[in-house]
Computed example of a mutant assay.
Amino acid sequence: MSSGPPDGLLMVDATTPAVLVLPGPVARDEVPGLCDDVRARLAATGAGVVVCDIGGLGPPGLTTVDILARLELAARRAGGRIRLRNPHPGLRGLLDLVGLRFESEGQTEEREPAGGVQEAVEPGDPPL
């Protein structure tokens, strides 16, 4: 037995970001459409973050940096931001070189200790 879709509005979890997959090389004329996609996903979810899966883009270059900068600008103007998923290992260095910072999935935020790290206690330290 099957049932149809529920009546009324679908519930969207505002804490779960939408995902935009960039499966391969992106042409310059495709970027405005991708920016529209980012804005639409932010509006639809209300999460404030769109995860961009960029694993399919291949080795990073300045074209990749330009695309990511434009997507981030579109997200910021819509009141959100993008988070990178599956970035190429060399991308972080290239982004640092041009002065851009992006949050990546699985990356600890600044001022936040990495999970599972415990501080060592030295003999003779006073108890807390």
Rank of each mutant, 00 (worst) to 15 (best):
Asp29Lys: 06
Gly56Ile: 10
Ala114Trp: 00
Gly79Thr: 12
Gly55Glu: 09
Val49Arg: 14
Val21Pro: 00
Arg85Asp: 03
Gly33Ile: 05
Leu10Lys: 08
Leu91Glu: 01
Leu42Phe: 05
Met11Arg: 15
Arg28Asn: 13
Glu122Asp: 13
Pro25Cys: 04
Leu73Phe: 05
Leu91Thr: 06
Glu112Ser: 07
Ala114Tyr: 03
Glu119Ser: 10
Arg39Thr: 15
Pro23Leu: 11
Glu30Cys: 05
Val31Gln: 03
Ala18Asn: 08
Thr108Asp: 04
Leu94Ile: 12
Leu42Val: 09
Ala69Trp: 08
Leu68Asp: 07
Glu103Cys: 01
Pro127His: 05
Thr45Lys: 13
Asp13Gly: 01
Gly93Arg: 10
Leu68Pro: 01
Arg39Asn: 04
Ala78Trp: 09
Leu95Thr: 13
Gly116Arg: 14
Pro60Gly: 01
Ala43Ser: 14
Asp29Asn: 13
Ala27Arg: 14
Glu112Arg: 15
Pro113Asp: 12
Asp7Arg: 14
Gly79Ser: 07
Cys52Glu: 07
Gln118Met: 09
Gly93Phe: 01
His88Cys: 00
Leu84Lys: 07
Thr15Val: 11
Ala69Pro: 00
Met1Tyr: 08
Asp37Ala: 15
Leu128Gln: 10
Asp29Gly: 02
Ala74Glu: 08
Gly55Phe: 03
Pro5Cys: 00
Gly8Thr: 05
Thr16Trp: 05
Asp37Val: 04
Asp7Val: 11
Met11Asn: 08
Leu42Tyr: 02
Leu73Ile: 05
Gly116Ala: 12
Arg83Phe: 00
Leu91Trp: 07
Ala40Ser: 11
Leu57Val: 07
Thr64Met: 06
Gly99Lys: 13
Met11Thr: 15
Thr64Pro: 00
Val50Ala: 02
Gln118Thr: 14
Arg83Leu: 10
Pro126Gly: 03
Leu20Cys: 13
Ala74Arg: 09
Thr15Glu: 14
